[in-house]
Simulated scan of single mutants.
Amino acid sequence: MNDSIKDTLKTDFQKFMTYCLGTNGGFGFEEFGDYTTSVLNFYVGSSVLKISEKEAAAYYLCQLYNQGIQNVMSRSDMEELAHELAGDPTLEYAVLRPIFD
């Protein structure tokens, strides 16, 4: 996964997080999971991200989320979560709307 993809992931993650904090008052685990599965599947479907990079991208998003929750997840927790999120085929376009506004 190159730096350009990481920058895109980070920028879109920050947009979504800001949206959640401004509208929902929080950015919990459920919102993170819904966003991550949808954005990864969207990026793969639109050829922004290779399928072989999907789990690494999920891990990167877990790292970003973990920073925001005071690093409470261990590396093994993030690896397991990234594996599960990368394997989820869910794509909810409504979830992604805030990153395109």
Score class of each variant (00 low, 15 high):
residue 2 N to I: 07
residue 2 N to W: 04
residue 3 D to I: 07
residue 3 D to Q: 15
residue 5 I to A: 09
residue 5 I to L: 15
residue 7 D to M: 04
residue 8 T to S: 14
residue 8 T to V: 14
residue 8 T to R: 15
residue 8 T to F: 05
residue 10 K to W: 01
residue 10 K to V: 00
residue 13 F to A: 06
residue 13 F to L: 08
residue 13 F to V: 07
residue 14 Q to F: 08
residue 15 K to Y: 10
residue 15 K to A: 13
residue 16 F to D: 01
residue 16 F to H: 15
residue 18 T to G: 06
residue 20 C to S: 15
residue 20 C to P: 07
residue 21 L to W: 00
residue 21 L to H: 02
residue 22 G to M: 03
residue 22 G to K: 14
residue 23 T to I: 11
residue 24 N to L: 12
residue 26 G to V: 03
residue 27 F to Q: 04
residue 28 G to S: 07
residue 29 F to K: 12
residue 31 E to V: 00
residue 31 E to K: 12
residue 32 F to P: 08
residue 33 G to K: 15
residue 34 D to N: 12
residue 35 Y to N: 04
residue 37 T to A: 13
residue 37 T to Y: 01
residue 38 S to Y: 08
residue 38 S to H: 07
residue 38 S to L: 08
residue 39 V to E: 04
residue 41 N to K: 12
residue 41 N to R: 11
residue 43 Y to S: 10
residue 44 V to C: 15
residue 44 V to M: 09
residue 44 V to R: 13
residue 45 G to H: 04
residue 47 S to I: 01
residue 48 V to Q: 10
residue 49 L to K: 00
residue 49 L to T: 01
residue 51 I to A: 15
residue 51 I to S: 13
residue 51 I to P: 00
residue 52 S to R: 10
residue 53 E to I: 02
residue 53 E to F: 01
residue 54 K to P: 05
residue 54 K to R: 15
residue 55 E to H: 05
residue 56 A to E: 14
residue 60 Y to D: 05
residue 62 C to K: 06
residue 62 C to F: 02
residue 64 L to S: 03
residue 64 L to V: 05
residue 65 Y to D: 02
residue 66 N to M: 08
residue 66 N to W: 02
residue 66 N to K: 07
residue 67 Q to H: 10
residue 67 Q to L: 11
residue 67 Q to V: 11
residue 68 G to C: 09
residue 71 N to F: 08
residue 71 N to G: 02
residue 72 V to E: 06
residue 72 V to A: 07
residue 72 V to F: 01
residue 74 S to K: 14
residue 74 S to D: 04
residue 75 R to G: 01
residue 75 R to N: 12
residue 75 R to Q: 12
residue 77 D to E: 08
residue 77 D to V: 00
residue 79 E to F: 02
residue 79 E to R: 14
residue 79 E to L: 13
residue 80 E to V: 11
residue 81 L to M: 13
residue 81 L to A: 11
residue 83 H to S: 15
residue 83 H to P: 00
residue 84 E to Y: 03
residue 86 A to I: 07
residue 86 A to D: 03
residue 87 G to S: 14
residue 87 G to Y: 03
residue 87 G to A: 14
residue 88 D to S: 12
residue 88 D to H: 04
residue 90 T to M: 14
residue 90 T to Q: 12
residue 90 T to W: 00
residue 90 T to N: 09
residue 92 E to A: 06
residue 93 Y to A: 11
residue 93 Y to S: 10
residue 95 V to W: 03
residue 96 L to A: 05
residue 97 R to N: 10
residue 98 P to L: 04
residue 98 P to T: 03
residue 99 I to F: 08
residue 100 F to V: 11
residue 100 F to G: 09
residue 100 F to D: 05
residue 101 D to G: 13
